[in-house]
Design a protein around this nucleic acid. Sequence first.
DNA 1: GTCTATAAGGAGATAGAC
DNA 2: GTCTATCTCCTTATAGAC
Lengths: 204, 204
Amino acid sequence: MSIFGKLSFKDQAFKLRENAILDAATSVLGTKGYDLMTMDDVAGAVGISKPSLYKHFKSKEDLVGEALIRLIDGAVDYLAQLDAALSPKNKLAALLEWALRVRLDGGLPFLPSTSAHVRDMLMRNLKYVTRVLKLNGQIEKLVLAAQKSGELDAALPSDVILFSYYARTCDPAVEYLQRFSKMSNEDIVRHMLQVAFDGFHPAR
Amino acid sequence: MSIFGKLSFKDQAFKLRENAILDAATSVLGTKGYDLMTMDDVAGAVGISKPSLYKHFKSKEDLVGEALIRLIDGAVDYLAQLDAALSPKNKLAALLEWALRVRLDGGLPFLPSTSAHVRDMLMRNLKYVTRVLKLNGQIEKLVLAAQKSGELDAALPSDVILFSYYARTCDPAVEYLQRFSKMSNEDIVRHMLQVAFDGFHPAR
DNA sequence: GTCTATAAGGAGATAGAC
DNA sequence: GTCTATCTCCTTATAGAC
């Protein structure tokens, strides 16, 4: 049995094309952002026509929603596969590292919602909201556990850590370093992790 | 002599309206972002018609450029007015605090350029680039001085600190805290400063 | 299911009257 | 300098042939 399970050949091909579309959408979304991404861009990148694209996804919002759902699922899968023996803080660090690598490889940031427009659109997408809440619940638990054990600062409100953590996954400094410094991706990830957890101050 | 110097009454009124337009553009830009801001939005917010708007600013790009130039100038002025006796790191902290307060008051973040489109547009704006380079030179000097004196981590590449510093001025965690936590603006600013300089780790 | 062709509407920019 | 009305282009989405 293939990885497609019981799907017919036709359905397999359909799934494959759907994934190719999501890949293209992810790539365009990463470079141009939601507002400037056009359905023509995506169709062109996949090599199909626009009406065919609409056979797979009923609207631009739907397409983008599915692309982001795939991203969130990737994060949840990554968390699930981590060594259970890792401490909460080390799990958070590993997930942030994963998110930064995904972005450096041309993927999307979580929280693509700097724009109020995009955020509102996503909040109307029930399927997306469900997945985000699932991931958020896991991250929140890790933050609280890390604060309790003293790995993270318990004096900070956990909201501050949580939201700042999300913000670090889409930190624009990553793009600027990639663009203007000669640093390797490895070094960028390492330094971004250090700045997130230790800030700018020297080790005391 | 008024603050307008030698300007005629007509020119004074012109300047006043121009400032009102920039205020409106700043506000719309802050809530909707560049791509979704329409010239109708701005004209409507000021209470003039679109053609009148185009008498003051020859294009949308021009208008946005001027609004951002005014913001950068505000930052430069703020820096210049700081107590010269402050240490480099404390100057950086004060400027970050100023930038966060501007945003919490409905203003714009620096570095509105999460989008490649907007960034490229701004980079073609010579006047804007000149101002940004001026501000950047001052901030870079402060970073290097703070690293040299040991106030900031000298083991980090200064690029990493510099770009991350800019990123903190537009940290989306600010909006999320304002929206979803019951925290006062004062507390938000205080916590964001702590997270920027000390990270998530507890004081050691 | 795929395409060519097109409808429908939005947004930047301007013509021309006053 | 200001406005009403309009031009033009672009983008989402679909109709209809194969």
